[in-house]
Design a protein around this nucleic acid. Structure first.
Lengths: 214, 214
DNA sequence: GCAAAAGTGTTTCCGGTACACCCATGG
DNA sequence: CCATGGGTGTACCGGAAACACTTTTGC
């Protein structure tokens, strides 16, 4: 590699961190892992992240890391921001590209992995290693923006869902309640859903219509 | 530095590239430099960019590079996107953080530098070295978004300006014409300008009122 | 009086928001 | 008949866009 400078300086190196979301019980969860013993923050919770391999892009690194650490396949991925503060990693100069990721909500696609990983609700995130709380905050803002400005909701939902379930997901992402009539009017007017003309009966209430994303 | 892997692999390193804008004659210009002889693209036009020093953030690197190469002080700076394709630099694995920068429009603050640099209108950008055309495209999109959604126009204008001049800047940034009445209504309703109650006489037409940003 | 840019209002449409009641079902 | 969530409509407001003529000046 010809990038070493003459003055013996080593350049900053590149990592990727994944803020990986998933809806569990209609609540927004984030994937965290316990930082290993030999790391600067042994035992503390951290986002899933690591160095880019020499022959992979940042996106590929995110895919690999999630697969390695928690057996997760991402179904949506989007670069959010790159963090380059000098001392963000005590071991050396590491610049980190942060990604917003949505994991499949299909339970079969989640296997138990070697490392300790856990899905935590966004309301209960502890203090994280490195600058990961700041990264999480940035990515969460992006998710809130995206939920009403892109089709990301498609990746947070199961294939078939009711409008109430969809609204619950919006509410857990935004962290606030939405008026039911306005929500339905807005979603339906966007012409992104398909009415399957099926209903889901659940307990003692009126059955709900089933939709899918187009 | 403890970041070298055991398997003798060298990690990707970090550069920053600046897409530096300036209004000249009410047209949007971008700062380019000729890539040096010893580079992979000798003599080709490129964005101003370079490796991060070990003790500087990406923003600081952008400041330094613009100062070194063209004597430019940036008055607005914003990270846009990080490019990590594997072969984007033929010399090795370089990941580049792209910045949207606005240079001072004050002519005195621009000195002639060693390297060949040139301000080119966005309409006349040639084929650039590396993936810099792609970077420019991304950053330009961001600028178009920002012009109506942030106060970036403040940094593109001289201190004192007329509404017609402001509108011209919006038009050169967006690459399209804007209705004069709608433009004035919108800008004035935002309460971001201050009427200096002065006029600028210029040639044979009605004098225009002078504004500044609040 | 004319050329050249400055300045000015009204109407229409659309998306966002506030707000309250009836419907279908199982027990 | 009742408890539970499913489902519906209207009115108001503010921002965006379309659109044409009068004003001020120097010559």
């Amino acid at each position: 590699m010809k990038l070493k400078s003459k003055s013996n300086i080593v350049f900053a190196v590149v990592a990727a961190d994944a803020v990986c979301f998933r809806i569990i019980n209609e609540k927004l969860h984030v994937l965290l892992e316990k930082a290993p013993k030999y790391s600067p923050f042994p035992g503390e919770w951290a986002l899933v992240g690591g160095m880019l391999h020499p022959r992979e892009t940042a996106e590929e690194a995110v895919n690999r890391l999630l697969e390695e650490r928690a057996g997760i396949k991402s179904i949506y991925k989007e670069q959010v921001y790159t963090f380059s503060k000098i001392d963000r990693d005590p071991r050396g100069r590491v610049v980190s590209i942060a990604y917003l990721v949505v994991a499949s909500s299909n339970p079969q696609e989640l296997k138990k992995a070697d490392l300790e990983t856990e899905w935590m609700t966004v309301k209960s995130i502890p203090k994280l290693a490195y600058d990961h709380n700041e990264i999480l905050k940035n990515v969460l803002e992006k998710l809130k923006f995206n939920i009403f400005n892109t089709n990301i909701a498609k990746y947070l939902m199961r294939k078939e869902f009711t409008l109430s379930e969809l609204q619950n997901v919006y509410e857990t992402v935004l962290g606030k309640n939405i008026d039911k009539r306005n929500f339905r009017k807005k979603i339906l007017s966007q012409d992104i859903l398909k009415d399957l003309h099926k209903v889901r009966k659940e307990g003692v209430m009126r059955p709900a219509k089933i939709y899918i994303f187009k």
